[in-house]
Design a protein around this nucleic acid. Sequence first.
DNA 1: GATTAGCACTCAACACTTTCGAGTGCTAAC
DNA 2: GTTAGCACTCGAAAGTGTTGAGTGCTAATC
Lengths: 345, 345
Amino acid sequence: MDMIDRKYRILQAIIDDYILTALPVGSRTISRKYEQRLSSATIRNEMSDLEELGYLDSPHTSAGRVPSYKAYRLYVDQMLQPLPLSVEEMAMLQKCLNSRMRQVEQISAQLASAVSGMTHYTTAVMTRTPREDLRLSHLQLVPVADRRVLLILVTTTGTVRQTPVDLEMQVAPDVLYTVSRILSSQLEGCPLSQLGTRLQEIARRESDEMAKLLGTLAGTQEDVPEVSSIVVGGRSNLLRFPEYSDVEKARNLLSVLETRDKLVSLLSGNGEMEISVRIGPENGVEELKDCSVVTASYRLGDGKVQTIGLIGPTRMQYGRAISVLTQVGRTICGLFSDQDGELRP
Amino acid sequence: MDMIDRKYRILQAIIDDYILTALPVGSRTISRKYEQRLSSATIRNEMSDLEELGYLDSPHTSAGRVPSYKAYRLYVDQMLQPLPLSVEEMAMLQKCLNSRMRQVEQISAQLASAVSGMTHYTTAVMTRTPREDLRLSHLQLVPVADRRVLLILVTTTGTVRQTPVDLEMQVAPDVLYTVSRILSSQLEGCPLSQLGTRLQEIARRESDEMAKLLGTLAGTQEDVPEVSSIVVGGRSNLLRFPEYSDVEKARNLLSVLETRDKLVSLLSGNGEMEISVRIGPENGVEELKDCSVVTASYRLGDGKVQTIGLIGPTRMQYGRAISVLTQVGRTICGLFSDQDGELRP
DNA sequence: GATTAGCACTCAACACTTTCGAGTGCTAAC
DNA sequence: GTTAGCACTCGAAAGTGTTGAGTGCTAATC
């Protein structure tokens, strides 16, 4: 029996137990539940070593020991065994995402609630549209009121964006249609981010009336927000954990979840289709220094990128969290065969 | 000094004090803080009467007394004095709603966060569109992909609704335009709820190809949800109140706020531009039987109806809540001079 | 007759002590 | 290297008094 290996196993047992119970783990517990061939005294010696190595902390002399951040890091990096979901759970996920939904908001909400239900962790779903990816496919002006039109932009990926525009003069529907057709053909393939500038250019080449119209249109295409929506689900789950039975802590946490900026920073900064685990202070938000965040991003086929984040105490069930997010990724990618963010059964 | 009047004043003092402190109120407190000309013994007698009348409860023999639901009801119905907001607060509200926003979701979120910030109560904002009110003003088909078009409906109030439609055959943009124009003129003024039926009717009079197209369009106009969005803000405020320092209670409450149905029922059922106060069990949601809900509805000019609900403990600052909601109503109605849900500075 | 002072009684909250048990570290024996 | 044994530590839980805010009742006072 390799000694290094044994230390490793004991550390793993401690982390597993602590994740399960949230109670400091004593040598006796390990000896009875995990390493029955070793006496508590032996475990004690090992634990003493592990503490010296920085993997364990002791809250006080006669409590058990608690894993340190370093331990969780090691655990996540090396000790995690894949933990497949049950068939029922996968079916549940599939079913939940299957229902016909049109709005991204709705999908996100559904997803957040399903995932938080499955994991018991608070779940945040952020959807953003990387602007550079969006190119114009079709443009249409629709009359709404006398001097008011709706500018509809269809992108190559099928996303639709609508902007109300107030014109300075009245324009006949037929004219609007002609203008739409000309602009459509001239601007096809133009990145949405450059649409304003391109419209200005075209306007410069046009005569008085038309230039004015195009100028007004250009003016509406300035600030398109990148992050479109953030939905949070399963907040009440936070209060299940004994670490937040202190109301003040819970309140802090909840109020972070109400701060859009902090959520964005929590969910940003990892690549596409990649799962990232940020333990404790790693997540960068001061108030969440003893929370961990597991995030995953998926590309939704229509140019949108969705990031799902699970937020829980540092003693999170990382294996479970990662499995669920992986499966969600597979399910979503399988479903999104469509162009406008609509799900297909 | 009228005796009835005095009882009244004492009850009011008790409620006021309890709302402020959340602590059972004793006779001595009232005698010192509110009715200095009366001794505690006198107050005691009055309180004893009030208890017999059902306005006060005593948690146990030697605690003070606590207002009953009946007392709160009386308080709200008869004792409430108008409590105008400060100039700063009104300015804050105005400023917060003033910023240019396009999406109803955004307005709601902003509003929820502002109102919950001002009142320290959790705030839910529901937006719905009474279907019967919506009538078609303009219809436009926009090509998106080969066999895919976007059906855009503009209502008389200026709301825009878009539905992606998959066609069975490819249709040239010019044809789409012509069809749009004809349908627009034929269907103008048609309530959105009847749109599907009307399209079917027209289809029946048409030839093969066209009938198919119209039939497909009609098929998409079936289930338009009435409640479009619910946004909740200031959840963390709940944990400020000592009544929710019991984590289990707080969790229950939070999880009600995550149940869309319950939120809908909480926010539904009061008329337009009217403020409703539902105390404790009156709000009809079992889990919220010791919460009160103050709601107000406003018509947004574009046919949408927004309902704002403040959720807090039964010892809510009703006066304050009502003032804030009244002011919000005024501000919103002032701002919504526009047709498509966009706010104007 | 309404008001009040006075008194006995109640009960939660707080501080304090004791007990208990789960834990540790160390040492000596296996 | 492993383990049994022992002394020690410390938080949690349970028990104990004390305090103070509260009540209800009665008798005296205005």
